[in-house]
Design a binder for these strands. Sequence first.
RNA 1: GGCCCCAUCGUCUAGUGGUUAGGACAUAGCCCUUUCACGGCUGUAACAGGGGUUCAAAUCCCCUUGGGGUCACCA
Length: 487
Amino acid sequence: MICETPRVRFAPSPTGYLHVGGLRTALYNYLFAKKTGGTFLLRIEDTDRKRYVEGAIESLINSLKWCGIDYNEGPGKEGNVGPYLQSERLDIYKHHSLHLLEQGSAYYCFCTSERINILREQQEAAGTQPKYDKHCLTLSKKEAADRISNGENHVLRLNIPAGNKVVFDDIIRGKVEFSTDTIDDQILIKSDGYPTYHLANVIDDHLMNITHIIRGEEWLSSTPKHVLLYQSFGWEIPLFAHLPLLLNADRSKLSKRQGDVAVEDYRAKGFLKEALVNFVALLGWTAGDDKEYYSLEELVEAFSLERVNKAGAVFDLQKLSWLNAEHLRRNSTADITRMLKEELAESEYSSILFTDEYLNLVVDAMRERISFVHEILENSKYFFTAPDDYDEAAIKKRWTTESAMYLNKYAGELETLQCTSKEDYEHALHKCTDELGIKAAQIIHPLRVAVSGVGGGPGVYDIVFIIGKEETLRRIRRSIELISPSR
RNA sequence: GGCCCCAUCGUCUAGUGGUUAGGACAUAGCCCUUUCACGGCUGUAACAGGGGUUCAAAUCCCCUUGGGGUCACCA
């Protein structure tokens, strides 16, 4: 064990999309494997046929792939301990469960769900913990066999001995102790012949040589059942690391009801995978220094399970957005332009052709002003279309009765020039203000309103240079027509 | 309710017996800037409470409180 290289797994059930909590679990497993030179495998826990969702496995794999988390073994990447879909391992579970039955660690149960429900109601009414009463434990082997061959519905239960303690060590939490008196005789094999999670995950983790079980804290309270199973099989118990939960703003377990939980949701909202991964990694782990910006490679380098926190962490969108901006700005102009073109293709401007050269200028003008690429479209429409209305507050603040006259003069000045550089626009403006004997601001601000329709944004000279002389003149004249009469 | 886990600024966290309790996001102010941002500086803001142990507790122990998870033929 000590000399073995670690083998870890991410074992989601295919009930929909990849949850960000799942992403974090997958990421920590991945980071741990990478860091230690171990193996990371993906196993699909699809033993619940009622919850199976078409396409969920593909979606899961796609989301992981998008995030840059790839597995060494799993669906589509067969190693030598497959198959990696539990639904394809039914014979294995059956085989091992027989062993449990023979040694008395498990027993057949024929109780109907009606009886179980009544039992539970009585226990709840009595204020005691709902637990199966081992009613079928006393059945003889012969009787059980007869009832099974008669086609009677049955399940297999784990026989939990009363009065014992189950103790295990958790890498993150230390020693955890449970009394067997509080543990129910868990169903191992359902009446449909499929194993429950508890049985399947223990058998698979053993057969797949998993050394470290890194999973969410919601599994902590069923871990003693798993420990008991390992002991019954006579198998070595892997190391456990139960990760703190990801929380809603109200500190309950992160749920769909209170916002987006799927990786796909964040992707669709324009978050960069680098930012999502970086953010989620920091939810429950730090290297201990002040570093907050990480690439995946840097995370691998810095990660350790020992530094994972115990307490749950609130998923804070504002900080995610900030990290997104940080990651976005470190992209090259060409890369951001590439992303902008994708946004453009799906926008109302999809039919207009913009050159890369033009878009590069737009990106350089906007990159310090955005957290998301799509904000270029939202916050600087004027690079893609002439303003069709003008911000009222900006007019009020910047447009005076003289503005039209000043802009007219500036337009006249521009017409005489070639306007090949940003400086040409600037010189022309200063020439006007000098002749007029006014301050530059008296033209600059109305000019900004005229060409952009809004009060903020990149430098005016940048804007007019990017949209060009003809367009600038057009917009100046149009603004004079539209704004001045109302003043 | 039983069992289990957890507890430092609003949020993410540093801190492993001696610190003016640090950083980041958010927030407020100032500077930079003929706009808006970026950036820089500054501020507001935390050890849940009570007992111990100790010369000394955010740090160790106990209790209380609070929060969360879990109690399925779901994972």
